[in-house]
Design a protein around this nucleic acid. Structure first.
Lengths: 360, 360
DNA sequence: TTGTACGCGTTATCAC
DNA sequence: GTGATAACGCGTACAA
């Protein structure tokens, strides 16, 4: 059953049937209704391949999650939440979503070849691309519009991205700890080859400086966004007696909690802890994590919307979107009354204070 | 740059160039090499839409995660791990992966219409479909091969699926608790409208029966696969003084841990706890969860492989695959020495005992 | 407002 | 072993 058949049944030509489908105004009301009736009756849907062949549009966007580590599928709801947002927005705009997951073993060449030569995508969303990844240097080969989630390390001006102001994230977290009276504030970073890792580190340094606290290399562990980095980093930092720790991500913070537990350190009494992201583990942890919440799902949604706007020519040129974030105070930093530590409420945000930050 | 251009550059006809690309043996070695050289030089890739138009094959499989609750993106690495497996297998077979996430609000009609009419998929993998979901009654409309992950509730004989033997999972978990000397074994179920929920419940009952323990409705909470179900279910069960609890999933068990923590019950001393899945939270929990590990990522990979085999005609008829599972003993059940409770090791499985179960 | 005719880039069939 | 040529199903100038 193709357009020709539909047209025949409706007693019109194929072009007219096509016009009806594509909402061309130059069709009389009567014929339009006749054609639509046949279409509904036959449950007809135009062949996407044929349509793509002539329009050169697929209404499909690609999503690349190149992360070579196991980060995607371990202790980290960050990417699933991104996907939820991406799915939501593509659904709304009537696009479909082609998913490309980076390989754990061979992180590079094959993936790049496939995505850059696959015709079935109008554009790409690329999530959390580490500047060491070889896709990074080959973005030009894509020959399609693309939007990155999380700001790229180099050439960001020329590239569309959706992110948050990570320098301010680092500042906000660190200042919160300073205001609590902490003075030996340690930091476990994410990958310094990503803006998320690098800029949060910068913010940490700036906050110390602004408040007249010394920056001490011994109190910094250069890690990555993963639980083990938190666990091992914390163990290495504990001998230097930090009284607080800013973890660049919640997964890192979870590892810190485990290390503290093993070392007999009480969080928040002995160690005041702040993470970033507010992914689920932040609330299931004991004590619950004080963290900088970023709108992960919205990042996904906005990235997809931006990409589709680029594809459809509704906007042009590099798009830069910074979303707002906020400090969420829970048990791990010690700002709340002792009785609430580790509390687990049905309304998870009920008893929380929050501070706004970031740009719209 | 199309096939015609390539042919011209190589001094052959389009048909011959096509034959080279499709590895047709009826091409002389010389011409093949000449054509391949041009293809490499021009970095040519045939237009997928044009090819699909005539072959009616897209080399794309769809993955549907219809879950209407927020399960996909909250405290649950189950679906991300499935996706990792699906991605791995599709990559290996040179397919691409079109992702359809169920909507939280409107769980049904639009999604069904889109996936059943989208031409750009050779087949579908459908994950964890609840029998109440309206997609369930409309599988016939798909008119494409499909494979379900997790056994369907009805008509399973006619439907291809990849799963585990969940009755035995329930038995194994319950028997483990019985062997530890527990007698008042509670159970919080998953959705009883899924085989995962229903069959694990059956296994629980059968194990009690087999060991001469009474089945007590008061010790069962009919829940769903989510943290809150565990939390609330546990609170309702605690007044009936269970000395053990079998949670149908690890996320449920996490909720139970929180409830126990609040109620001042010590796990495993006061309450021996076993979950199912061995997703990440099982290891980050304190104490770590004793659980039935199932090969989630492999389920995804096998589902994709099975689907592609069906698409390519390498197998035909309904395919039923049951994967093996195993009991992983950690701190939450009380079988280990007290000193190891909550331990967090770099080699997470080093100190674990395991029991095999299930079919290959 | 409607219809005719051409082209999109392939694969498949057939003749040579 | 190779080359014309006819599909595949649709959109769209252009003509009517």
């Amino acid at each position: 059953m193709n357009l020709e058949d539909i047209a025949k049944k409706a007693g019109v030509s194929r072009s007219t049937a096509s016009r009806v489908i594509n909402a061309d105004p130059n069709v009389s009301k009567g014929t339009r209704e006749r054609v639509l009736a046949v279409i509904a009756q036959e449950n007809f849907h135009p062949n996407a391949a044929a349509r793509t062949l002539v329009t050169r549009r697929t209404e499909v966007i690609g999503v690349v999650i190149p992360t070579p580590e196991n980060i995607f599928f371990t202790d980290n709801s960050y990417f699933p939440m991104l996907l939820a947002g991406l799915g939501e927005a593509t659904r709304e705009r009537n696009y479909a979503l082609l998913l490309w997951l980076g390989e754990v073993t061979d992180n590079d060449e094959r993936l790049i070849g496939k995505i850059s030569n696959h015709h079935l995508m109008d554009g790409l969303v690329i999530a959390s691309l580490d500047s060491r990844h070889s896709l990074y240097s080959r973005l030009a080969e894509l020959r399609r519009p693309f939007v990155m989630i999380d700001k790229p390390m180099n050439g960001a001006e020329q590239i569309s991205y959706v992110s948050i102001d990570n320098v301010r994230v680092g500042e906000l977290a660190t200042e919160h700890l300073i205001k609590l009276g902490r003075r030996r504030i340690a930091h476990i970073t994410g990958q310094m080859t990503t803006t998320d890792g690098y800029e949060r580190f910068l913010g940490y340094k700036q906050a110390l400086e602004r408040h007249g606290l010394p920056f001490d290399e011994q109190l910094v562990h250069y890690g990555y966004f993963g639980r083990l980095a938190g666990y091992e980093g914390a163990k290495q930092l504990f001998p230097f007696k930090p009284d607080a720790l800013f973890a660049a991500g919640d997964t890192i913070a979870i590892g810190v909690l485990q290390a503290a537990h093993e070392a007999g350190l009480h969080v928040p009494h002995d160690l005041s802890l702040v993470g970033v992201d507010d992914i689920d583990v932040a609330r299931t942890a004991i004590p619950q994590l004080t963290t900088i919440r970023q709108p992960v799902q919205r990042k996904g949604a906005v990235a997809a919307q931006t990409l589709i706007d680029l594809i459809e020519g509704k906007v042009s040129g590099p798009q830069h979107v910074l979303l707002p974030f906020e400090l969420v105070i829970r048990g791990s930093c010690g700002a709340l009354a002792g009785s609430q530590l580790g509390a687990f409420s049905r309304e998870p945000f009920l008893a929380q204070q929050s501070m706004q930050g970031g740009d719209a």
